[in-house]
Design a protein around this nucleic acid. Structure first.
Length: 126
DNA sequence: TAGGCCATCTGGTCCT
DNA sequence: AGGACCAGATGGCCTA
């Protein structure tokens, strides 16, 4: 059987192109599903203070950024405390209680303020 | 009904 | 050649 070449467009070639396109669509769907799974996993580890609605992808990225920066700050503060106060340096049990604590006059817990989602848009190419 | 968010399709580009 | 990744287009769903 003669092989079809580019100089010989025919039904067989069209069929093959259609099959490849369908396969590419399926791969793309799987790829996007993988991406969405990753977003769901990220949503689960990122704080969602009182948010009943799930974060959008954009908000999830923003929140992850705020969260990482807050954790970095905590580590830096802890290092500072460890260097200056032996008790803080050794005992980490105070952290959850501290995060849930409401300081007098503050409307929200310390942790919420620390990790709070700040809507600072990424610079978008215009 | 307009606007936001999302899933899917599609064609282009790069890499193996 | 085929797969991965990307960005644009399109249409559906939901909410204010």
């Amino acid at each position: 059987m003669k092989m079809l070449t580019s100089s010989c467009p025919g039904p067989g070639r069209q069929e093959s192109a259609a099959r490849r396109r369908l396969a590419a669509n399926a791969r793309e769907r799987r790829r996007m599903q993988g991406l969405n799974t990753a977003f769901d996993r990220l949503r689960r580890v990122v704080p969602q203070w009182g948010q009943d609605k799930k974060l959008s992808k954009y908000e999830t990225l923003q929140m992850a950024l705020s969260y990482i920066m807050a954790l970095t700050r905590i580590l830096a503060e802890r290092d500072w405390a460890a260097a200056h106060c032996e008790h803080f340096g050794r005992d980490h049990r105070y952290l959850p209680a501290l995060a849930a604590a409401k300081l007098p006059g503050e409307p929200e817990p310390y942790g919420q303020r620390l990790f709070g989602f700040q809507h600072e848009p990424f610079p978008m190419a215009s």
